[in-house]
Amino acid sequence: MRVMVMVKATKDSEAGIMPSTELLEAMGKYNEELVNAGIMLAGEGLKPSSKGKRVAFDGQSRTVIDGPFAETRELVAGYWIWEVKDMAEAIEWVKRCPNPMPGPSEIEIRPVYEMADFADAMTPAVAELHDRTSEKLAAR
């Protein structure tokens, strides 16, 4: 199964404080382990939300909101995409991660939807409609 593993933001990451050399080194080693275990597919760090934008939707209206955003603990500071056997394996690998922040921090694991998850709602007719739309998008 594929999971997205998200490192949650903290006050420090939101303030744009760069990680220490020690942390960078520990993270480098950890990333190497993930690659060597064959589970890491991708991963990136995100700049603080002060550099980000949000687009709010309400009916037909679209409002652009400038960062930074308030709810720090809910923001994402970085992510990986992993291919693991199950959630238990993802948890075990996350536990081995060095604390990604100088203070207390949190990492969230979310499974990625797979086609099989839509099995009930995805009738052949709906699937075909879905296909036609995404095909047009891909062809652009």
Binding site: L41, A42, D131, S134, E135
Partner: peptide, 9 residues
């Protein structure tokens, strides 16, 4: 349907 091809892979 090439939109279903996994671009990451």
């Amino acid at each position: 349907n090439r939109a279903r091809w996994d671009r990451l892979l």
